[in-house]
Design a protein around this nucleic acid. Sequence first.
DNA 1: GCATTAACCACAG
DNA 2: CTGTGGTTAATGC
Length: 226
Amino acid sequence: MSVHNCKECQLKCAAAKYLNEDEYNVLEEHSVSVPFKKGEIIFKQDALSLNVAYLKSGLAKIHVHGPSHEKIIKIVKAPSYLGIPTMIGDKINQFSATALEDTTVCFIDTNLFVNFIHTNGKFAYELILELSRNELSDYQRYVSISQKQIPGMVAETLLCLSCKIYESCNFSLPISRSEIGDLIGTSRESVSRVLTDFSNEKIIEINLNEVKILNMERLKQINEKG
DNA sequence: GCATTAACCACAG
DNA sequence: CTGTGGTTAATGC
């Protein structure tokens, strides 16, 4: 456990801004900050859900094991809550979270968290905002994966990593080809092929996991027309 | 039919 | 884990 001062924490979520002095003190007593290394499991599907997890820094994947394969639901960048739905909605985790790079996660006592929702309207409202945004972006992703062809979906993931996660045209893939397949619902082979196709067409440059987007416009075209 | 798309398999780095 | 090639099944023109 690291030094813990919730009020001074620069990484706290929008909702936590609305806590008062007393609430901060209680929060500090009922939460811990834990570092995770790349690849470590933050919490696991089917285990008992004991805490609300808040990703303070780093990157994580939310994933479930389906009937046949592993399915990655989404990649989450800090700062963000990791799975409010599974913490409050059920006693058993409905999915797993795994660190994709070195991360810090704050675990908060679920009962306390629920208390804040009951007693602090602004806190609750901010939380609902975040949940709503998540649901809307999930809807968009459902549409994408059900209607796009593979190049469109690979383009979408590259754009997402570039624009939303790394905010740069140059970045290093945080996940393997096989995991990209699990993310967009296709095979690792197809991902490989599309990636080399993109590279041959000079849309991206790729060696190992280093990606450089050369033709952003083209990539957006492929993303949109599927 | 023929072309396209993508999954599955296998084998080589 | 990745890249490639061959094969197969489904779909569309």
